[in-house]
Design a protein around this nucleic acid. Structure first.
Lengths: 138, 138
DNA sequence: CGCCCGCATTAGACGGAGTCTAAAGTCACA
DNA sequence: TGTGACTTTAGACTCCGTCTAATGCGGGCG
Protein backbone atom coordinates (compact mmCIF):
# COMPACT_ATOMS: atom_id res chain seq x y z
CA UNK A 1 0.00 0.00 0.00
CA UNK A 2 2.77 2.45 0.75
CA UNK A 3 3.81 1.06 -2.63
CA UNK A 4 0.72 2.70 -3.96
CA UNK A 5 1.50 5.98 -2.23
CA UNK A 6 5.07 5.80 -3.56
CA UNK A 7 3.88 5.21 -7.09
CA UNK A 8 1.52 8.15 -6.82
CA UNK A 9 4.15 10.47 -5.46
CA UNK A 10 6.40 9.37 -8.29
CA UNK A 11 3.75 10.47 -10.73
CA UNK A 12 3.80 13.98 -9.38
CA UNK A 13 0.91 13.72 -7.01
CA UNK A 14 0.80 16.28 -4.30
CA UNK A 15 0.33 14.19 -1.19
CA UNK A 16 -2.57 15.23 1.03
CA UNK A 17 -4.31 13.71 3.99
CA UNK A 18 -7.45 13.17 1.90
CA UNK A 19 -5.70 11.28 -0.85
CA UNK A 20 -3.86 9.14 1.64
CA UNK A 21 -7.12 8.24 3.32
CA UNK A 22 -8.84 7.27 0.08
CA UNK A 23 -5.89 5.11 -0.91
CA UNK A 24 -5.96 3.44 2.50
CA UNK A 25 -9.65 2.68 2.27
CA UNK A 26 -9.26 1.04 -1.12
CA UNK A 27 -6.25 -0.89 -0.01
CA UNK A 28 -7.85 -1.99 3.24
CA UNK A 29 -10.57 -4.37 2.08
CA UNK A 30 -10.52 -6.15 -1.21
CA UNK A 31 -14.20 -5.72 -1.91
CA UNK A 32 -15.95 -3.67 -4.52
CA UNK A 33 -17.05 -0.42 -2.94
CA UNK A 34 -19.21 2.30 -4.39
CA UNK A 35 -17.95 5.86 -4.32
CA UNK A 36 -20.28 6.64 -1.45
CA UNK A 37 -19.12 3.65 0.52
CA UNK A 38 -15.55 4.79 0.03
CA UNK A 39 -16.63 8.21 1.21
CA UNK A 40 -18.31 6.77 4.31
CA UNK A 41 -15.19 4.84 5.28
CA UNK A 42 -12.99 7.82 4.54
CA UNK A 43 -15.11 10.06 6.76
CA UNK A 44 -14.52 7.62 9.61
CA UNK A 45 -10.80 8.38 9.37
CA UNK A 46 -10.95 12.02 8.37
CA UNK A 47 -14.31 13.55 9.22
CA UNK A 48 -14.04 16.67 7.11
CA UNK A 49 -13.35 14.97 3.79
CA UNK A 50 -15.88 15.89 1.13
CA UNK A 51 -17.74 13.80 -1.38
CA UNK A 52 -16.29 15.76 -4.29
CA UNK A 53 -12.75 14.96 -3.21
CA UNK A 54 -13.49 11.27 -3.01
CA UNK A 55 -14.94 11.36 -6.51
CA UNK A 56 -11.96 13.34 -7.81
CA UNK A 57 -9.46 11.04 -6.20
CA UNK A 58 -11.17 7.89 -7.41
CA UNK A 59 -11.25 9.33 -10.91
CA UNK A 60 -7.55 10.05 -10.79
CA UNK A 61 -6.72 6.60 -9.48
CA UNK A 62 -8.72 5.12 -12.33
CA UNK A 63 -6.97 7.13 -15.01
CA UNK A 64 -3.63 6.25 -13.51
CA UNK A 65 -4.62 2.61 -13.82
CA UNK A 66 -4.31 1.96 -10.09
CA UNK A 67 -7.96 1.15 -9.61
CA UNK A 68 -10.61 -0.35 -11.87
CA UNK A 69 -14.07 1.02 -12.42
CA UNK A 70 -16.75 -1.65 -12.49
CA UNK A 71 -20.22 -0.88 -13.83
CA UNK A 72 -22.17 -4.11 -13.52
CA UNK A 73 -25.61 -2.62 -13.09
CA UNK A 74 -27.22 0.75 -13.47
CA UNK A 75 -26.72 1.64 -9.86
CA UNK A 76 -23.52 3.17 -8.54
CA UNK A 77 -20.13 2.43 -10.10
CA UNK A 78 -17.90 0.25 -7.98
CA UNK A 79 -14.15 0.49 -7.55
CA UNK A 80 -11.87 -2.48 -7.67
CA UNK A 81 -8.43 -1.98 -6.15
CA UNK A 82 -7.24 -5.22 -7.74
CA UNK A 83 -6.18 -3.47 -10.95
CA UNK A 84 -2.80 -5.09 -11.40
CA UNK A 85 -4.02 -8.68 -11.70
CA UNK A 86 -6.24 -9.04 -14.78
CA UNK A 87 -9.56 -10.60 -13.92
CA UNK A 88 -13.25 -10.55 -14.67
CA UNK A 89 -16.41 -10.44 -12.60
CA UNK A 90 -19.19 -12.74 -11.48
CA UNK A 91 -22.29 -10.89 -10.36
CA UNK A 92 -25.33 -12.13 -8.47
CA UNK A 93 -28.40 -11.02 -10.39
CA UNK A 94 -30.37 -10.99 -7.18
CA UNK A 95 -28.32 -9.32 -4.46
CA UNK A 96 -25.61 -7.68 -6.60
CA UNK A 97 -22.67 -9.41 -4.90
CA UNK A 98 -19.51 -9.31 -7.00
CA UNK A 99 -16.65 -11.83 -7.08
CA UNK A 100 -13.40 -11.60 -9.00
CA UNK A 101 -12.88 -14.56 -11.32
CA UNK A 102 -10.14 -15.78 -13.61
CA UNK A 103 -11.50 -17.62 -16.63
CA UNK A 104 -9.19 -19.72 -18.72
CA UNK A 105 -8.83 -18.67 -22.33
CA UNK A 106 -8.38 -15.27 -23.87
CA UNK A 107 -11.53 -13.69 -25.27
CA UNK A 108 -9.49 -11.08 -27.16
CA UNK A 109 -8.14 -13.86 -29.34
CA UNK A 110 -11.70 -15.04 -29.95
CA UNK A 111 -12.64 -11.94 -31.90
CA UNK A 112 -11.71 -12.53 -35.54
CA UNK A 113 -10.54 -9.63 -37.68
CA UNK A 114 -13.70 -9.87 -39.70
CA UNK A 115 -15.64 -8.94 -36.57
CA UNK A 116 -13.52 -5.93 -35.65
CA UNK A 117 -14.94 -3.39 -38.10
CA UNK A 118 -11.62 -1.59 -38.28
CA UNK A 119 -11.57 -0.90 -34.56
CA UNK A 120 -8.31 -1.00 -32.66
CA UNK A 121 -9.46 -3.34 -29.92
CA UNK A 122 -7.53 -2.91 -26.71
CA UNK A 123 -9.53 -4.43 -23.93
CA UNK A 124 -12.21 -6.95 -23.00
CA UNK A 125 -14.50 -7.08 -20.04
CA UNK A 126 -16.34 -10.25 -19.23
CA UNK A 127 -19.24 -10.26 -16.81
CA UNK A 128 -20.74 -13.55 -15.71
CA UNK A 129 -24.23 -13.35 -14.27
CA UNK A 130 -25.96 -15.83 -12.05
CA UNK A 131 -27.40 -16.39 -8.62
CA UNK A 132 -25.21 -16.72 -5.57
CA UNK A 133 -25.64 -19.57 -3.06
CA UNK A 134 -27.21 -17.25 -0.49
CA UNK A 135 -29.91 -15.98 -2.79
CA UNK A 136 -30.49 -19.43 -4.29
CA UNK A 137 -31.35 -20.89 -0.89
CA UNK A 138 -33.73 -18.07 -0.04
CA UNK B 1 -42.15 -7.52 -36.29
CA UNK B 2 -45.83 -8.39 -36.25
CA UNK B 3 -44.19 -11.60 -35.04
CA UNK B 4 -43.16 -9.61 -32.05
CA UNK B 5 -46.64 -8.19 -31.56
CA UNK B 6 -48.08 -11.69 -31.92
CA UNK B 7 -45.71 -13.08 -29.36
CA UNK B 8 -46.61 -10.31 -26.96
CA UNK B 9 -50.32 -10.78 -27.43
CA UNK B 10 -49.76 -14.48 -26.84
CA UNK B 11 -48.19 -13.64 -23.52
CA UNK B 12 -51.30 -11.84 -22.38
CA UNK B 13 -50.30 -8.34 -23.30
CA UNK B 14 -53.11 -5.92 -23.70
CA UNK B 15 -52.35 -4.26 -27.00
CA UNK B 16 -52.29 -0.48 -26.94
CA UNK B 17 -51.21 2.16 -29.39
CA UNK B 18 -48.28 3.09 -27.14
CA UNK B 19 -46.90 -0.42 -26.93
CA UNK B 20 -47.26 -0.92 -30.64
CA UNK B 21 -45.31 2.26 -31.28
CA UNK B 22 -42.47 1.31 -28.96
CA UNK B 23 -42.22 -2.11 -30.57
CA UNK B 24 -42.17 -0.50 -34.01
CA UNK B 25 -39.40 1.90 -33.05
CA UNK B 26 -37.22 -0.91 -31.76
CA UNK B 27 -37.90 -3.04 -34.75
CA UNK B 28 -37.35 -0.23 -37.21
CA UNK B 29 -33.64 0.41 -36.91
CA UNK B 30 -31.20 -2.11 -35.64
CA UNK B 31 -29.15 0.31 -33.65
CA UNK B 32 -28.72 0.68 -29.92
CA UNK B 33 -31.03 3.40 -28.70
CA UNK B 34 -31.29 4.93 -25.26
CA UNK B 35 -34.68 5.07 -23.57
CA UNK B 36 -34.93 8.75 -24.34
CA UNK B 37 -34.08 8.20 -27.99
CA UNK B 38 -36.80 5.57 -28.15
CA UNK B 39 -39.11 8.08 -26.54
CA UNK B 40 -38.21 10.77 -29.07
CA UNK B 41 -38.91 8.46 -32.01
CA UNK B 42 -42.11 7.24 -30.41
CA UNK B 43 -43.32 10.81 -29.92
CA UNK B 44 -42.88 11.36 -33.66
CA UNK B 45 -45.46 8.66 -34.30
CA UNK B 46 -47.73 9.22 -31.32
CA UNK B 47 -47.24 12.68 -29.87
CA UNK B 48 -48.94 12.13 -26.53
CA UNK B 49 -46.90 9.13 -25.41
CA UNK B 50 -45.19 9.71 -22.07
CA UNK B 51 -41.69 8.98 -20.94
CA UNK B 52 -42.93 6.74 -18.13
CA UNK B 53 -44.76 4.51 -20.58
CA UNK B 54 -41.68 4.10 -22.72
CA UNK B 55 -39.69 3.11 -19.65
CA UNK B 56 -42.39 0.69 -18.54
CA UNK B 57 -42.69 -0.89 -21.94
CA UNK B 58 -38.95 -1.24 -22.41
CA UNK B 59 -38.71 -2.85 -18.99
CA UNK B 60 -41.42 -5.33 -19.90
CA UNK B 61 -39.79 -6.17 -23.21
CA UNK B 62 -36.55 -6.81 -21.38
CA UNK B 63 -38.08 -9.13 -18.83
CA UNK B 64 -39.87 -11.00 -21.58
CA UNK B 65 -36.50 -11.49 -23.23
CA UNK B 66 -37.53 -9.69 -26.41
CA UNK B 67 -35.03 -6.90 -26.02
CA UNK B 68 -31.60 -6.71 -24.42
CA UNK B 69 -30.43 -4.05 -22.03
CA UNK B 70 -26.90 -2.89 -22.71
CA UNK B 71 -25.00 -0.84 -20.14
CA UNK B 72 -21.63 -0.18 -21.70
CA UNK B 73 -20.87 3.04 -19.96
CA UNK B 74 -22.31 5.01 -17.08
CA UNK B 75 -24.51 7.07 -19.30
CA UNK B 76 -27.96 5.93 -20.33
CA UNK B 77 -28.82 2.26 -20.80
CA UNK B 78 -29.26 1.21 -24.40
CA UNK B 79 -31.74 -1.24 -25.83
CA UNK B 80 -30.81 -3.89 -28.33
CA UNK B 81 -33.70 -5.42 -30.27
CA UNK B 82 -31.42 -8.19 -31.50
CA UNK B 83 -32.17 -10.38 -28.48
CA UNK B 84 -32.73 -13.66 -30.28
CA UNK B 85 -29.31 -13.97 -31.83
CA UNK B 86 -26.69 -14.29 -29.09
CA UNK B 87 -23.95 -11.74 -29.55
CA UNK B 88 -21.61 -9.43 -27.72
CA UNK B 89 -20.60 -5.80 -28.08
CA UNK B 90 -17.69 -3.78 -29.36
CA UNK B 91 -17.66 -0.22 -28.02
CA UNK B 92 -15.64 2.78 -29.12
CA UNK B 93 -14.02 4.27 -26.05
CA UNK B 94 -14.03 7.64 -27.70
CA UNK B 95 -17.39 8.24 -29.34
CA UNK B 96 -19.42 5.47 -27.73
CA UNK B 97 -20.42 3.75 -30.96
CA UNK B 98 -21.59 0.17 -30.44
CA UNK B 99 -21.35 -2.76 -32.85
CA UNK B 100 -22.73 -6.26 -32.40
CA UNK B 101 -20.02 -8.91 -32.68
CA UNK B 102 -19.92 -12.71 -32.66
CA UNK B 103 -16.73 -14.03 -31.11
CA UNK B 104 -15.78 -17.63 -31.61
CA UNK B 105 -15.53 -19.71 -28.46
CA UNK B 106 -17.82 -19.90 -25.49
CA UNK B 107 -16.71 -17.90 -22.48
CA UNK B 108 -19.18 -19.73 -20.23
CA UNK B 109 -17.14 -22.88 -20.74
CA UNK B 110 -14.01 -20.95 -19.78
CA UNK B 111 -15.14 -20.47 -16.20
CA UNK B 112 -14.01 -23.51 -14.23
CA UNK B 113 -16.14 -24.77 -11.34
CA UNK B 114 -13.46 -23.72 -8.92
CA UNK B 115 -14.10 -20.13 -9.99
CA UNK B 116 -17.86 -20.23 -9.62
CA UNK B 117 -18.12 -19.87 -5.84
CA UNK B 118 -21.31 -21.91 -5.78
CA UNK B 119 -23.11 -19.51 -8.09
CA UNK B 120 -25.55 -20.82 -10.66
CA UNK B 121 -24.05 -19.06 -13.65
CA UNK B 122 -26.56 -18.44 -16.39
CA UNK B 123 -25.20 -15.77 -18.64
CA UNK B 124 -22.08 -14.00 -19.88
CA UNK B 125 -21.67 -10.57 -21.34
CA UNK B 126 -18.51 -9.71 -23.19
CA UNK B 127 -17.67 -6.11 -23.99
CA UNK B 128 -14.74 -5.37 -26.24
CA UNK B 129 -13.38 -1.85 -26.01
CA UNK B 130 -11.30 0.00 -28.52
CA UNK B 131 -11.24 2.94 -30.87
CA UNK B 132 -13.30 3.01 -34.03
CA UNK B 133 -11.80 3.95 -37.43
CA UNK B 134 -13.52 7.34 -37.38
CA UNK B 135 -12.10 8.38 -34.04
CA UNK B 136 -8.70 6.89 -34.83
CA UNK B 137 -8.29 9.10 -37.89
CA UNK B 138 -9.32 12.24 -36.02
C1' DC C 1 13.03 28.57 7.59
C1' DG C 2 9.15 30.78 5.80
C1' DC C 3 6.62 32.71 1.54
C1' DC C 4 3.86 32.25 -2.09
C1' DC C 5 2.12 30.06 -6.34
C1' DG C 6 -0.67 26.91 -7.92
C1' DC C 7 -2.75 22.61 -7.13
C1' DA C 8 -6.41 20.53 -3.88
C1' DT C 9 -10.43 20.70 -1.18
C1' DT C 10 -14.91 22.24 0.09
C1' DA C 11 -20.12 22.88 0.22
C1' DG C 12 -23.68 23.04 -2.17
C1' DA C 13 -26.08 23.80 -6.45
C1' DC C 14 -26.90 21.48 -10.53
C1' DG C 15 -27.81 17.80 -14.21
C1' DG C 16 -29.12 13.41 -16.30
C1' DA C 17 -31.31 9.10 -15.94
C1' DG C 18 -34.62 6.50 -14.05
C1' DT C 19 -38.59 5.41 -10.69
C1' DC C 20 -42.88 6.23 -8.41
C1' DT C 21 -47.58 7.84 -7.47
C1' DA C 22 -52.31 8.82 -7.78
C1' DA C 23 -55.65 10.08 -10.95
C1' DA C 24 -57.65 9.48 -15.49
C1' DG C 25 -58.20 6.71 -19.59
C1' DT C 26 -58.97 2.55 -22.33
C1' DC C 27 -58.96 -2.40 -23.71
C1' DA C 28 -61.53 -6.52 -24.23
C1' DC C 29 -64.53 -9.98 -22.45
C1' DA C 30 -69.20 -11.06 -21.29
C1' DT D 1 -72.30 -1.92 -24.66
C1' DG D 2 -70.96 -1.99 -19.82
C1' DT D 3 -67.46 -2.76 -16.53
C1' DG D 4 -63.43 -4.12 -14.09
C1' DA D 5 -58.81 -4.60 -14.57
C1' DC D 6 -54.97 -3.15 -16.78
C1' DT D 7 -52.46 1.10 -18.85
C1' DT D 8 -51.13 5.62 -19.35
C1' DT D 9 -50.08 10.13 -17.78
C1' DA D 10 -47.62 14.29 -15.70
C1' DG D 11 -44.74 15.60 -12.77
C1' DA D 12 -42.48 15.12 -8.40
C1' DC D 13 -38.83 12.58 -6.57
C1' DT D 14 -34.35 9.89 -5.85
C1' DC D 15 -29.93 8.54 -6.77
C1' DC D 16 -25.47 9.20 -8.61
C1' DG D 17 -22.37 12.03 -10.27
C1' DT D 18 -20.34 16.70 -11.93
C1' DC D 19 -19.44 21.49 -11.65
C1' DT D 20 -18.32 26.00 -9.59
C1' DA D 21 -16.33 29.58 -7.07
C1' DA D 22 -14.27 30.40 -2.88
C1' DT D 23 -10.93 28.82 0.45
C1' DG D 24 -7.04 26.00 2.06
C1' DC D 25 -2.59 24.01 2.00
C1' DG D 26 1.82 21.41 -0.02
C1' DG D 27 6.27 22.05 -1.01
C1' DG D 28 9.93 24.18 -4.05
C1' DC D 29 12.49 28.64 -4.00
C1' DG D 30 14.71 32.31 -2.19
Amino acid sequence: MSDLLERLRGRGWRMTAQRRVVAEVLDGEHVHLTADEVHARAVAKLPEISRATVYNTLGELVSLGEVLEVATDKRAKRYDPNAHRPHHHLVCAHCGAIKDVHPSGNPLADLPDSERFGFTVSDVEVTYRGVCPNCASA
